[in-house]
Amino acid sequence: MLLTENQSPNSQTGFTLIEVIIIIAIVGILASIVIASYQNNIRKTQVSIIYQDINHFRMPYQILVNEGAGPTGFSPNGLNLNEKTKNCQYSVLAPNTNATTLDAVKCQIQNLNYLTNQTISLDLAADGTWHCRASSGIPAAYLPLACQ
């Protein structure tokens, strides 16, 4: 081993135990922040997918309204859509004439343990506009802007 002018033959280089412990603590804190952020983003994405899926009901529903279909046509099968997806059990109600139809299309969320017994609904207003409504147990941070 070659010695420089400022080193003594007995000097050691490297990290002390305290320095290693501090580095491990900092890495642990950063890892916990990253994991929490990742889980939050996963939940936002799952709720956004549910919102996108429920929006597939709008056009077929509106077509049935325009054609004057009876109440029996207003079901997921009557709209030629699935009653159930990985995260939703859908229900569809016939429109109220000249009034807002609450829960015209409703998704009962399933298979997401952090959203047990929660729903996302599309309400059809009397003027033909659609409004998203989420149950109070879904944190606003997870909801798309249209549902807040």
Rank of each mutant, 00 (worst) to 15 (best):
L81H: 05
L81T: 12
N82E: 12
N82P: 02
N82W: 02
N82K: 13
E83F: 06
E83L: 12
E83D: 14
E83T: 11
E83Q: 10
E83C: 01
K84Y: 05
K84Q: 15
T85P: 01
T85R: 05
T85Q: 06
T85S: 07
K86I: 10
K86N: 12
K86T: 08
K86H: 02
K86V: 00
K86Y: 03
K86S: 08
N87L: 06
N87A: 09
N87T: 15
N87I: 04
C88T: 04
C88N: 02
C88L: 00
Q89R: 13
Q89L: 11
Q89M: 14
Q89A: 09
Q89P: 06
Y90K: 02
Y90A: 11
Y90V: 07
Y90S: 05
Y90D: 03
Y90N: 01
S91W: 01
S91G: 04
S91M: 05
S91D: 09
S91A: 04
S91E: 13
S91R: 12
V92T: 06
V92D: 09
V92I: 14
L93K: 04
L93S: 00
L93P: 00
A94K: 14
A94S: 15
A94H: 10
P95Y: 09
P95N: 14
P95Q: 11
P95L: 10
P95G: 13
P95R: 09
P95D: 15
N96Q: 15
N96T: 09
N96P: 04
N96V: 07
T97S: 14
T97D: 11
T97N: 13
T97G: 05
T97Y: 15
T97K: 15
T97E: 10
T97I: 14
N98R: 08
N98H: 09
N98A: 12
A99Q: 11
A99C: 02
A99D: 08
A99L: 10
T100C: 05
T100G: 01
T101V: 11
T101L: 11
T101D: 08
T101E: 15
T101W: 07
L102D: 05
L102I: 09
L102F: 00
L102K: 05
D103G: 00
D103H: 02
D103I: 04
D103A: 00
D103W: 01
A104V: 11
A104E: 02
A104Q: 08
V105Y: 00
V105H: 00
V105N: 01
K106N: 13
K106H: 09
C107A: 12
C107M: 13
C107K: 10
C107N: 13
C107Y: 13
C107W: 03
Q108H: 04
Q108W: 08
Q108R: 15
Q108E: 14
Q108G: 09
I109E: 12
I109G: 07
Q110H: 07
Q110R: 07
Q110V: 12
Q110C: 05
Q110I: 15
Q110F: 12
N111Q: 07
N111P: 13
L112M: 15
N113H: 15
N113Y: 12
N113G: 13
N113K: 14
N113A: 10
N113W: 10
N113P: 15
N113E: 11
Y114H: 11
Y114N: 09
Y114D: 15
Y114K: 03
Y114F: 12
